[in-house]
Nucleic acid binder design. Sequence first.
RNA 1: GGAGACGUCGCAUAGUCUGGUCUAGUGCGCCACCCUGCUAAGGUGGUAACGGGGCAACCCGUUCGGGGGUUCAAAUCCCCCCGUCUCCGCCA
Length: 422
Amino acid sequence: MIDIRFLRDHSDVVRASQQARGADPTLVDAALAADARRRSSLVAFESLRAEQKSLGKQVAQASGEEKTALLTRTKELSAQVKEHQATANDAEAELDALLFRIPNVVEGAPAGGEEDFVTLRTVGTPRDFAAEGFAPRDHLDLGEGLRAIDTMRGAKVSGSRFYFLTGVGARLELAILQAAMDKALAEGFTPMITPTLVTPETMRGTGFLGEHADEIYRLERDDLYLVGTSEVALAGYHGDEILDLSDGPKRYAGWSACYRREAGSHGKDVRGIIRVHQFHKVEMFSYCSVDDAAAEHERLLAWEEAMMAAVELPYRVIDTAAGDLGTSAARKFDCEAWLPSQERYLELTSTSNCTTFQARRMNVRERTDSGTRTVATLNGTLGTTRWIVAILENHQQPDGSVRVPEGLRPYLGGLEVFEPVR
RNA sequence: GGAGACGUCGCAUAGUCUGGUCUAGUGCGCCACCCUGCUAAGGUGGUAACGGGGCAACCCGUUCGGGGGUUCAAAUCCCCCCGUCUCCGCCA
């Protein structure tokens, strides 16, 4: 939710943001009009209510004829108060509905759609498989050879886009996640294992129930949603709280299963485990002061890049275009690893600065010298199941074995190579 | 799943039976000042959030788990929901 006072004072900025996203700029004027209606109806209601309260006190003291006369008057007033209260409530609901549809105000992201990202840097060099004298296999070929990935049985048991990780595949996922948790711990994050089923209020608060509601699994009988990331639970964690951030940001590392319906992606990334309905992820989440949010965003990105280095992958960092930002994000950086089999980059991490957007919906504030104010929230990926794809492909050897990056060996009992099973 | 108790301003609690004097009291904690050569103790005052109006001092409104209802008037009465705790049952 954007700040209505910001909207009042800087409507041009919000309009420009809507344009940069390719969203509807007329929502801004509709919201301003609704706000004006809300305020005028509120003034009318509040003055009537004040009169009602003061007369109510006189009723309590009065008796006899005086009381009867007062009661006649207060009965009239009571009806008027109800009427105006309803009007004010309606105006507020109308404003809320409009505000809910306005995504976060873009901060510094390039304008345009998915293709309009800006590459900030490219790190590492993709291997030249032609020079090495063999054609790279894709991750599923490799994973099947290693008995690490079983998508056939995944489909048998649960349908398409499900899979089993077996043997070294299971161990590799645990290694990635454990390395991510250790990295987070080293940087001062509090490790968290979070709920993966959340209430509608929590899901709404994080901004996932707007345009992207189709992506989310819902358990209708219980009125709960399956989260697509632990960000959801972590954003709700401090809901309705006033935090003390005088010692710096509150940082949490969430470990959870993640569920995505992939409703709009039929036919896309159907092979292997690139795009699946269920996976695991370690997610960084930070509550920080608005003044510190941009710097915190850089820090989250740096920690992600440290993980990319630990698994020895060539990657690029992109500054996502406004139209490709989530509802809550003001800016987003992705680390994309090179995918040899497809000769393209694949998103492995994503870090978003949600500024005060999520925190306002979740009602998370901090105490300052001059009162309270809404905090900023940020999130970023530190490791996911999908990393297996890039690790297998980039570290493969001609015989179908895969070199284990040094950063993961401590988590695999020192194992240096995954050997194919004959 | 069944029975019961409970949910009040950071924490603890009073108030609910008997609706209006609740502008929600008190203690703790916290802040400021005073006193005491330090410390401890004591004294005085202040201590919620949100929204609206105003240049401002300030004024008004909302909020007693959430939502509805009764009433001129609800922390207080009624209904529904959520949560916590205790006991029972069932399951792993």
